[in-house]
Structures are given as structure tokens and as C-alpha cells.
Amino acid sequence: MLGIAAAVLFFIAFLINAAGISTNEVFSSTNFMLIGLAALALHIAGIGHGWATRERGRGRRR
């Protein structure tokens, strides 16, 4: 889930940078990129991967 959020943040940063939109310091393309990198790092670390499904009955069914 955080991987998708990182992709969205990278896309917003790209749009701000490509369109040359002047924003204040909080919503700059660099800040969106850094937040996206943090979300991507958390995703790679395994945090926020969603719900894990448990596999019941590991034995073979007949």
C-alpha cells in the first residue's frame, strides 16, 4: 500500500516540477519527492504491506 502512495507522491512531484507550478515551501516538488522516498523505504522494509492472510491447515488435503 505504501508503494502505491509513493508512486502517487512521485507523480505529483513530477507534475509540479514539469508544469513549473509555483507553490509555497511546504508543497514543493522536492518535499513531495522526499515524502515519496520515505514511503517507498517503509514499503521495502515491510511496513504497511496490508493484511496478511493466514494459511490454515498446512497439511495436504485428501
Score class of each variant (00 low, 15 high):
Gly57Arg: 15
Met33Thr: 13
Gly57Asp: 08
Gly3Phe: 01
Ala18Val: 11
Gly48Val: 07
Trp51Gly: 10
Ser22Ala: 14
Asn24Lys: 02
Leu9Ser: 08
Glu25Asn: 07
Arg61Tyr: 02
Glu25Pro: 06
Ile44Val: 15
Gly3Glu: 05
Ala7His: 01
Val26Trp: 04
Ala5Asn: 06
Phe14His: 12
Arg61Met: 04
Asn24Trp: 02
Gly36Lys: 03
His49Phe: 06
Leu9Gln: 05
Asn31Ile: 10
Leu37Asp: 00
Phe10Trp: 00
Gly59Leu: 13
Arg62Gly: 06
Ala52Ile: 14
Leu40Gly: 10
Ser29Ile: 02
Gly59Arg: 14
Gly59Lys: 15
Leu2Gln: 00
Ile47Phe: 10
Ile16Val: 15
Val26Arg: 09
Asn31Val: 14
Leu9Trp: 02
Asn17Met: 10
Leu2Ser: 03
Val8Leu: 03
Ile16Asn: 09
Asn31Leu: 13
Phe10Met: 06
Arg56Met: 09
Ala5Lys: 07
Ala41His: 07
Leu42Glu: 04
Thr23Ser: 15
Arg56Ser: 07
Ala41Trp: 12
Ala5Cys: 04
Gly20Met: 11
Ser28Tyr: 04
Gly36Arg: 05
Ile35Asp: 04
Ala13Gly: 15
Ala39Gly: 04
Ala19Trp: 09
Ser22Asp: 12
Leu37Ala: 15
Ser28Asn: 13
Met33Tyr: 11
Leu40Tyr: 11
Val8Asp: 02
Ser29Leu: 04
Leu9His: 03
Ile4Val: 10
Leu37Glu: 02
Trp51Leu: 13
Val8Met: 01
Gly20Cys: 11
Gly20Glu: 08
Phe10Glu: 05
Ser29Gln: 10
Leu37Tyr: 09
Gly46Trp: 07
Ile21Gly: 00
Leu40Gln: 14
Ile35Ala: 15
Met1Leu: 12
Ser29Cys: 12
Ala13Lys: 06
Ala7Glu: 08
Thr53Met: 07
Ile44Thr: 13
Arg61Asp: 04
Asn31Thr: 14
Asn17Trp: 10
Leu9Cys: 08
Thr30Met: 12
His43Thr: 03
Ala6Ile: 05
Val8Lys: 08
Ser22Gln: 11
Leu9Met: 12
Arg62Gln: 09
Ile44Gln: 07
Leu34Thr: 11
Ile21Val: 15
His49Tyr: 03
Phe32Trp: 15
Asn24Met: 01
Glu25Trp: 11
Gly57Gln: 11
Ala38Trp: 01
Gly46Leu: 06
Gly50Cys: 07
Phe14Trp: 12
Ala39Tyr: 02
Arg58Asn: 08
Ala45Arg: 07
Gly3Pro: 00
Met1Arg: 09
Ser29Gly: 13
Asn31Gly: 08
Arg54Lys: 09
Ala38Arg: 00
Ile21Met: 14
Ile35Pro: 02
Gly57Cys: 08
Ile44Trp: 08
Gly36Val: 05
Gly59Ser: 13
Arg60Asn: 07
Gly57Tyr: 13
Ser28Gly: 14
Met33Trp: 05
Gly36Pro: 06
Leu37Lys: 02
Ala5Arg: 02
Leu37Phe: 15
Phe32Gly: 04
Ala39Asn: 01
Thr53Ser: 09
Ala13Ile: 00
Thr53Cys: 00
Met33Arg: 13
Ile21Leu: 15
His49Cys: 04
Ala19Val: 12
Phe27Val: 13
Phe10Ala: 08
Ile35Phe: 14
Ala19Asp: 07
Thr53Asp: 07
Ala52Arg: 12
Leu42Asp: 00
Val26Pro: 03
Leu15Tyr: 08
Glu25Asp: 11
Val26Ile: 12
Ala45Glu: 05
